[in-house]
Design a protein around this nucleic acid. Structure first.
Length: 677
DNA sequence: GTCGGGTGGCGTCAAAGCTA
DNA sequence: TAGCTTTGACGCCACCCGAC
């Protein structure tokens, strides 16, 4: 099973090394060292920008403007993605402070957004910053605390006379941050050229006050060279000393140093707070993550140790309590059972299930709670699991509760459960590793719904999202939050077999678009889409198949009516309308309130959002999928790995019937029949 | 050989989420 | 709460493959 990220990364390395020509088309197009970028992403994730990086960031802005790749290359220790992200907030901070953009940046747009377009002070991203008035900023002319009229007329940057005030404001703010914010000093490791003593001791760059503003155009004339960043704070001398003590050491030297110290160094720094004996590998890992932030290192090491111990205990517990095939089949007969693959031996049936969307992520215990995709068995196309993320909501629950949740997740793989998860946003988890390891299991008494009512209630709570989450999901549709929550709760209770709760209302509907926007609950997947679109133009591409309307506009695209609410801009093409039995007459009637399958939370397997999710998942793991196979290359059929290419293998190896069955089981009816509720 | 559909990856923006 | 990272989503493009 080539499911681990490490293996995938190794494949990428081989491909990029020139062994395979298949990948050269894509890899060559990208033209960058994937592995080093991925490693850089991992190393710099969550790491604060150092003063040195800040300086180089500013210098890069001066030199390259919005050419983020060039900026990233210049900085050397950050990816272009990280630079963009940092620049986004930096521009907002400049906007808030009324300070001009660097001239080179202004060449590609005078707006304070990454694209150069004017920053909308009312946008969510900007509002988070602008709504917070800097403590020492005089109640003057920046930000949304202006009057409405002022805000409408507001055009940063400030007039020259105000620039100095803004500079002072930034300086004051910087001082506040320097006092308040704990400093995290990332260890250089191999992040780039080692810092020198001279760099450490050099004075902060001289601030060059911007020369002024063209009062006619309102645009900045002179660039603020080496302008100090608003959140720049110099490290204390003590921390500088600490930093230097390990500075310059590469990983090998560091390991040697730690080994020679016999754990003494670790104990010296953090030993008093560490439970158990110091683990050098863990320490190194923490060091790479948190630099010399000893508190974080202690927290990380203790947490990791605890997690390792608990994982072993959980694994042992699951081995002894895993349900047997018969147990699960009996539940399937009740309508909430676990569907086994129709082909292969029992060994195959028990070992080939996996998590995540599209049958990937074997061994991945938690996936995204906001996108409850059902996985499909690579060979049978049978949905097998629901994904969920260990959110804060789940924290604080016992291991037993989590185990029970995982058991229940298997039950949720049935038609009803999945349907509910899509309709109502139910979440659950599925422990693939446990299942693969324990094919035989024990008696049905091990099932949580029979074993312990309290546990079941606990599971119900776990599966049920918080009231605020449901309220958030439904806010944009003006649906009563209380009603939505109650409906959701009833749905979960019904699915868990509570005899006192009848079938949920959704069961009465037989078609996707019989529900209108006024009544349809939102899926968690839609949660992020509740933004109010500033420019609610319909998408050019079908959300399901990504087709456009064609060069001659011959293909009709049906727009989701939620666009009127400013919360959706998706369109569905007429081919997909036909393929998925969506009623065109409703979609074509702007007064019908028809909403797209995405807003219904029932996107089919090929929908774009599924691709987004997969892409983002790959991206977050810092790797890319290996190339698709060419003629003569036989994809590994037993590979249900987490790669997108692996997904394409699945797609090609499945029969059409299996794929259709998978879609039906996923709750997306193809045959126009009533939903299998 | 050409064309177009299907599929998936990348670049990008903006908003959400996380952490100290 | 501020600062920073992560992620949802859109647009576009490259590649594969089948139909013509």
């Amino acid at each position: 099973m080539g499911s681990s990220g490490e293996e995938t990364e190794e494949e990428s390395m081989v491909v990029e090394g020139g062994v395979s020509n298949v990948a050269m088309g894509r890899a060559g197009r990208v033209g960058r060292d994937r592995t080093s970028v991925a490693a850089l992403v991992r190393r710099t994730r969550g790491v604060m920008w150092t003063p040195n990086e800040e300086r180089r960031f500013l210098e890069a802005l001066e030199r390259f403007g919005r050419d983020w790749k060039a900026c990233a290359a210049f900085i050397g220790t950050r990816t272009d993605e990280g630079v963009r992200s940092h620049a986004q907030k930096y521009f907002i901070k400049l906007f808030r402070a009324g300070m001009p953009l660097p001239q080179k940046v202004q060449e590609t747009g005078t707006g304070y957004t990454l694209s150069g377009n004017p920053l909308n002070p009312k946008s969510k991203a900007a509002l988070d910053y602008l709504a917070r008035k800097p403590r020492s900023l005089p109640a003057s002319k920046v930000g949304p605390w202006l009057t409405t009229q002022e805000e409408n007329n507001f055009e940063p940057p400030l007039a020259p006379g105000k620039q100095a005030d803004a500079e002072r404001t930034v300086q004051n703010k910087t001082d506040v941050n320097a006092r308040r914010r704990p400093r995290i000093m990332p260890l250089p490791m191999d992040l780039g050229p080692a810092h020198t003593q001279a760099e450490d001791d050099e004075e902060e760059p001289t601030q060059n006050i911007p020369k002024g503003v063209n009062e006619v155009s309102g645009e900045q004339n002179a660039p603020p060279v080496q302008q100090r960043t608003p959140d720049f704070d110099a490290p204390s001398r003590k921390r500088k000393t600490e930093h230097r003590s390990l500075r310059g050491m590469n990983e090998e030297n560091l390991k040697a140093f730690l080994a020679s110290s016999g754990g003494g160094f670790i104990r010296h720094r953090i030993g008093s707070s560490l439970s158990g004996s110091p683990d050098q590998d863990l320490f190194l890992e923490a060091l790479g993550l948190y630099g010399l932030d000893w508190n974080q290192i202690v927290r990380y090491m203790n947490k990791s140790k605890k997690a390792t111990t608990e994982a072993s205990a959980t694994r042992a517990a699951v081995i002894s309590q895993s349900p047997s095939k018969d147990d699960v089949s009996s539940q399937a007969n009740r309508g909430i059972g676990f569907k086994f693959a129709s082909r292969g031996s029992s060994e195959t049936s028990n070992s080939s299930f996996c998590c995540g969307s599209s049958g990937r992520d074997v061994g991945s215990e938690f996936t995204d709670i906001r996108a409850p995709d059902v996985g499909t068995n690579a060979q049978s196309g049978i949905p097998v699991a629901l994904g969920a993320k260990k959110s804060k909501q789940m924290e604080g629950y016992s291991d037993a509760a989590m185990d029970a949740l995982r058991d229940t997740a298997r039950l949720f793989s049935s038609q009803r459960a999945y349907l509910a998860s899509l309709k109502m946003g139910a979440t659950s988890t599925h422990d693939c590793s446990a299942e693969a390891s324990h094919p035989n299991g024990s008696s049905s008494d091990a099932q949580p719904w029979n074993r312990n009512k309290r546990l079941r209630a606990e599971v119900s709570e776990l599966v049920l999202p918080s009231f605020s989450q449901v309220r958030s999901n439904h806010r944009s549709l003006d649906m009563s939050a209380t009603a939505a929550y109650d409906a959701r709760k009833s749905q979960v209770q019904y699915l868990l077999g509570d005899d006192d709760v009848g079938p949920p209302e959704q069961a009465e509907h037989s078609s996707l678009d019989q529900r209108t926007a006024e009544h349809a609950p939102l899926s968690p997947r839609f949660r992020r889409s509740t933004k109010i679109l500033r420019d609610p133009r319909p998408s050019l591409h079908c959300h399901i198949c990504a087709r456009t309307s064609g060069k001659d506009k011959r293909r009709a695209l049906y727009v989701c009516q939620n666009i009127k609410r400013g919360v959706c801009q998706k369109v569905i093409c007429e081919k997909c309308m036909a393929d998925y039995q969506l009623t065109v007459h409703l979609a074509s009637d702007p007064e019908s309130g028809w909403i797209c399958p995405h807003c219904e939370g029932r996107c089919p397997r090929t929908a774009r959002c599924v691709n987004y999710h997969r892409t983002n998942k790959n991206r977050s793991e810092g790797r890319k999928a290996p190339p698709r196979p060419r003629d003569g290359q036989t994809p590994s059929t037993d590979d249900t790995s987490s790669t997108a290419a692996g997904n394409s293998f699945v797609r090609h190896s499945q029969s059409e019937e299996a794929m259709q069955a998978a879609d039906i089981l996923r709750g997306f009816h193809l045959a126009g029949s009533a939903l299998p509720v």
